[in-house]
Simulated assay, not measured.
Amino acid sequence: MSNSEQQVDQIGVIVRQRRKSLSMTQGELADLAGVSQRFVYDLERGKPSVALDKVLLVCSTLGLRLALEVAN
């Protein structure tokens, strides 16, 4: 598994954990974020082709933010 695939998987795990900690279903999250339930499903499972703008919407809805750092 490549580094980028691992990062996508990690984002999915964090999104799923946060959604569950808020007692939210995938459908509820999708409605609140303005994305499809299928998108949330794909994101949580680490699908590498998810759209970044929608990832940011989902993260914002969950009170999460993505942070970038310079790789060494």
Rank of each mutant, 00 (worst) to 15 (best):
Met1Phe: 07
Met1Gln: 09
Ser2Glu: 09
Ser2Met: 14
Ser2His: 11
Asn3Met: 12
Asn3Tyr: 12
Ser4Val: 15
Ser4Ala: 15
Glu5Val: 13
Gln6Arg: 14
Gln7Gly: 15
Val8His: 08
Asp9Met: 08
Asp9His: 10
Gln10Met: 10
Gln10Ile: 09
Gln10Gly: 14
Gln10Leu: 12
Ile11Lys: 00
Ile11Val: 06
Ile11Glu: 04
Ile11Ala: 07
Gly12Arg: 01
Val13Trp: 09
Val13Met: 15
Val13Pro: 05
Val13Lys: 14
Ile14His: 06
Ile14Arg: 03
Ile14Val: 09
Ile14Leu: 10
Ile14Met: 11
Val15Trp: 07
Val15Cys: 06
Gln17His: 09
Gln17Asn: 12
Arg18Glu: 11
Arg18His: 05
Arg18Leu: 11
Arg18Ala: 08
Arg19His: 08
Arg19Ser: 08
Arg19Glu: 07
Arg19Met: 14
Lys20His: 11
Lys20Glu: 11
Ser21Lys: 07
Ser23Gly: 14
Ser23Gln: 13
Ser23Cys: 14
Thr25Ser: 10
Thr25Gly: 03
Thr25Ile: 07
Gln26Ile: 10
Gly27Lys: 05
Glu28Met: 06
Glu28Ala: 13
Glu28Pro: 03
Glu28Gly: 07
Glu28Cys: 04
Leu29Ile: 02
Ala30Thr: 05
Ala30Cys: 05
Ala30Tyr: 03
Asp31Leu: 10
Asp31Ile: 10
Asp31Arg: 09
Leu32Val: 07
Ala33Val: 02
Ala33Gln: 00
Ala33Asn: 03
Ala33Glu: 00
Ala33Tyr: 02
Gly34Phe: 11
Val35Phe: 07
Val35Ser: 02
Val35Pro: 03
Val35Cys: 02
Val35Arg: 04
Ser36Asp: 00
Ser36Met: 00
Ser36His: 01
Gln37Trp: 15
Arg38Cys: 15
Arg38Met: 12
Phe39Ile: 01
Phe39Glu: 02
Phe39Trp: 03
Phe39Leu: 04
Val40Lys: 02
Val40Thr: 00
Tyr41Asn: 14
Asp42Gly: 14
Asp42Ile: 14
Asp42Glu: 09
Leu43His: 03
Leu43Glu: 00
Leu43Phe: 06
Glu44Leu: 11
Glu44Trp: 08
Arg45Gln: 11
Arg45Gly: 05
Lys47Ala: 12
Lys47Gly: 13
Lys47Phe: 14
Pro48Glu: 07
Pro48Val: 14
Ser49Lys: 02
Val50Ala: 05
Val50His: 01
Val50Lys: 05
Val50Asp: 01
Ala51Arg: 06
Ala51Tyr: 10
Ala51Asp: 08
Leu52Val: 13
Leu52Tyr: 08
Asp53Ser: 14
Asp53Leu: 11
Val55Asn: 00
Val55Trp: 01
Leu56Thr: 03
Leu56Val: 02
Leu56Pro: 01
Val58Trp: 03
Val58His: 02
Val58Glu: 00
Val58Asp: 00
Val58Ser: 02
Cys59Gly: 07
Cys59Trp: 05
Thr61Trp: 00
Leu62Gly: 03
Gly63Pro: 04
Leu64Tyr: 03
Leu64Ala: 01
Arg65Trp: 11
Leu66Pro: 01
Leu66Asp: 06
Leu66Tyr: 01
Ala67Arg: 10
Leu68Met: 05
Glu69Leu: 08
Glu69Tyr: 13
Ala71Gly: 14
Ala71Val: 08
Ala71Ile: 14
Asn72Gln: 12
Asn72Gly: 09
